[in-house]
Amino acid sequence: MNFHAPIDQDRASAVTLSPTIPAGRPHSKTGRIGVLLSNLGTPDATDTRSIRRYLAEFLSDARVIELPKWKWYPILYGIVLNTRPQKTGANYKTIWNTEKDESPMRTICNAQTAALAQAFADEPRVAVELGMRYGNPSIESALEKLVAQGCDRIVFFPLYPQYSATTTATANDQLFRALMKLRDQPAVRTVPVYYDEPAYIEALASSIEDHLSTLDFEPDVVLASYHGIPKRYAENGDPYPQHCHETTRLLRARLGWDDKRLLTTFQSLFGKEEWIRPYTDETVRRLAGEGVRRIAIVNPGFSADCIETLEEIDGEVREIFIHAGGEKFSHIPCLNDREDGMAMIEDIVRREIKGWL
């Protein structure tokens, strides 16, 4: 029995010689890879209008405020956005990078992006851009830049070591919302959280040791202060608290400290409901009351110094500790664009694009 159908030569030639190529991006793939770094974001300026615009975007995110709109929006637009921008703007002014007229976070994130781009300078197929979850430059605009450069594969890297739906998840959400607008979508990989990566722990430990070596005092206690989330979010399954405690545990092991020398606390409370404990401000007040006179605070959950570390920790929390009887206080900078921190980010990116290059 003959299973080979006869070939219609004229029809085969027509198909071969006259392919239909849809309009849009060229049919052949470029093979370029885009790396999209992302962080929380920042207002464009310290004036009330800029702060209000930023806070409106941030606080209307259902991942951040898990309340029904009918319940939350009257509070947000009727109270919060009419009262909070003035205070927040004043706080930003105390840390603002006046030379570049931008927030420290934007300055640092731009430096991180430039450093990572330089690390891939010998690989022309890799392009690096920065996109903030809130404010500018947006995730959507960064994605557009990468696609315009011929990137048909994207590695998305939210710079949050510990996972939370309020940070990592909402950044991923925003990326995929941007992708939904594209007819010809690039392939995408999202970078896993790295709270227990050996290189991350080593970079953190080294940054702590380096900073403490510059001080004229030895801290009695060091606090690892992480951004908090409402207790209800954790009870509903957010793994963030466990990730934070594991980071601290690994840091203790690396530094050779016990749980009395390095404590885990949570900061940046918002609203009236209970957040995960212990709170950073209450802890420093308690320590001072117990006779602790010298402390330092590190922020392992922040990849770049920002208003929560520079103004809240090195400003408000420092003042709380001193007023409660403390004598010496030091804030340990975030990894920012430190060489070992950037080497860690580069290593993670190279691991994620393995097989694409």
Rank of each mutant, 00 (worst) to 15 (best):
E319C: 02
R133N: 12
A14G: 14
A205Q: 05
D258I: 05
R49N: 12
P22V: 09
I33R: 09
P192V: 00
T214Q: 14
F58N: 10
I353N: 06
L143P: 03
K354Y: 09
T46N: 08
K354F: 09
T113G: 01
V128F: 09
P192H: 09
L212V: 13
D196Y: 01
E197W: 01
A12Q: 14
Q149K: 13
E346L: 04
T83A: 10
P22K: 11
L143N: 06
R318L: 04
D337A: 15
T107R: 15
R294M: 02
L262R: 09
R318P: 10
F120K: 02
M180I: 00
K29E: 15
D10Q: 14
P333Y: 05
V126N: 09
D210E: 14
P124R: 08
V147G: 03
K100S: 04
L310M: 10
D216K: 09
T46L: 04
I332K: 05
Y233D: 14
L81H: 07
H245C: 06
R338H: 10
R11A: 15
E282S: 12
W356S: 06
K181E: 14
R318M: 04
K93V: 01
S50F: 05
T168Q: 03
A121N: 12
V298P: 02
D238F: 02
A14C: 05
P124K: 07
F157E: 10
A142Y: 05
H227R: 10
A296K: 03
D305M: 08
G78C: 06
K69A: 15
W356T: 06
N336C: 12
P19I: 02
V191C: 14
N97R: 12
E197S: 11
E339R: 11
G289D: 11
Y160F: 15
R32C: 12
Y226V: 08
E308F: 12
S303C: 12
Q242R: 15
E273R: 03
E129I: 06
S225P: 01
P241D: 04
E319M: 07
P158Q: 07
A14F: 11
R232L: 12
E144A: 15
R125A: 14
H227L: 13
I154V: 14
V298R: 02
D281C: 00
F302G: 05
A117P: 12
K260R: 14
G341D: 03
R84Y: 03
A253K: 13
P278R: 13
